[in-house]
Simulated assay, not measured.
Amino acid sequence: MTDVDLRKLRYFVAVAEELHFGRAAERLHIAQPVLSRQIRALEHELGAQLFARTKRSTELTPAGRQLLDDARPLLNSAEALRRRVAQTARGPKTFTIGFMPGITLTAAVRAFEALRPDITVEILRTTTLDQAQVLYDGRADVSVVRLPIDQRGLSIRPLFEEPRLAMLPADHRLADKPSLDITDLADEHLLQHPDQVPEWRDVSLELRSGRSRPVPELNSVEEKLEHVAGGRGISILPRSVASFYQRPDVNAVPVNDIAPNKVCLAWLASRRSRAIQDFAALAGTVDWTPTR
Rank of each mutant, 00 (worst) to 15 (best):
E43S: 02
R139L: 07
R157C: 12
T94G: 09
A89Q: 04
A89H: 11
R83K: 04
Y136L: 11
D70L: 08
T104K: 12
L135H: 01
P92H: 01
G153K: 09
P117K: 01
T58S: 10
L67T: 01
L159K: 06
E161A: 07
R65L: 09
R72N: 09
L75C: 05
Q66M: 15
R72V: 05
T106S: 13
Q133Y: 13
V134A: 12
R53A: 11
T96D: 03
R83W: 09
L115W: 12
P163L: 04
R125T: 05
V144A: 07
I119H: 04
G47W: 09
P163G: 08
S57P: 13
P158R: 00
S143W: 09
Q87Y: 13
P101M: 00
A78W: 08
L46Y: 02
P117Y: 01
A63Y: 12
R125S: 08
L50Y: 14
Q133M: 11
R40Q: 10
I119V: 08
A63S: 12
T106K: 14
R110L: 14
L42K: 06
I103F: 08
P62Y: 11
I156F: 13
I39R: 06
R152F: 15
R82V: 07
K93W: 11
A63M: 11
P163H: 11
I119F: 15
R53S: 10
T120Q: 14
V145C: 04
L60S: 01
P73I: 05
A41C: 08
A114Q: 08
L105K: 00
N76I: 05
A78S: 05
G91T: 03
L159N: 03
E45M: 09
E43W: 07
T104A: 10
T104M: 12
L135V: 01
F95I: 02
A107T: 08
L129H: 14
L60Q: 03
V134K: 06
R90P: 07
P92D: 01
P101V: 00
T96G: 03
E161N: 03
L154P: 05
L50S: 05
R157Y: 15
T88H: 11
A41E: 04
N76E: 13
T61L: 09
R125G: 11
A80V: 02
T126F: 07
Q151S: 14
I97G: 02
R110Y: 14
I123P: 15
F95M: 04
A63I: 00
R116P: 00
T128D: 14
K93Q: 04
A108F: 11
I103H: 04
R56K: 15
V85R: 08
A41G: 04
T61M: 10
T120D: 06
R139M: 09
T128V: 14
T58I: 09
A71P: 10
D130A: 03
D70S: 09
D118Q: 00
K93V: 13
F112R: 00
D118C: 04
Y136T: 05
P62V: 02
R116N: 05
Q151L: 13
E43Y: 04
L74W: 07
V145E: 01
R139I: 08
P158W: 07
L50C: 01
A78F: 13
P117C: 02
K55T: 15
A107Q: 12
A80M: 00
L50D: 00
K93L: 10
E113C: 07
R146N: 12
D137G: 03
